[in-house]
Amino acid sequence: MSATTEPLLAARDLVKAHGRTDALRGASAELHAGEVLAVTGPSGSGKSTLLHCMAGILRPDGGSVHYEGLRLDTCTEDRLSALRRTDFGVVFQFGQLIPELTLTDNVALPLMLAGTSRREARARAGEWLGRFGVGDRADARPGELSGGQAQRGALARALVTGPRVVFADEPTGALDSLAGEQVMTELVSAARASGAAVLLVTHDARVAAYADREIRLADGRAAVTEGAV
């Protein structure tokens, strides 16, 4: 993690409008392998839009997103889908687990989509649920879980494929402060243990303090970047 190495993921001069609203107006950000980067800023500053563009969920109107030599902003939808299955993990504010599936099946799903057998996928899902302390809730459906348990399930689902980048958009936004602290501790330690980089969007300075570095957005641009690179 040094300024001289090539970033794993780089957004340059991103422009993105939602209808008539300019969400991004020339935002740039670089994520290096293995680092935890916080993107902060007031609501409406464009931080979630930046995350969505960098994760290949949204296509920017202008600018570029490079992931290991691949242009995410122009590559095909098939290529993006494949990348999201193998290299990227995503955690949102509300876990967005599939309500009809058990926790184990929710976590196993990304592996099965990538071609792993159901038996193998469920076994690995079980290991990750155990690691996040919700192994005893493996057969519960999302509606039966507390917010903290569901978010741990979402972390397991994001990390089960061994991604190189985890995108976390306000991952503690729906949790009380103690559960939020626990989820952040678990997210960062799991990412560090597996070598994954984390792009963390938050409006909360206490959550941002889990990162190695911070980019602050204001009015759709990166205003300041600080911390050790």
């Binding site: 960062v188 300075a205 206490r206 941002a208 303090a209 911070e214 300041v224 600080e226 911390g227």
Partner: peptide, 22 residues
């Protein structure tokens, strides 16, 4: 205020490392 904010954030990162050390 921006510089002070950076100093506060740097200290918050240090304290977060202290408390999350296994």
């Amino acid at each position: 205020l921006l510089r002070q904010r950076d100093a506060h954030m740097a200290r918050m990162r240090e304290l977060t490392k202290v408390k999350t050390t296994p």
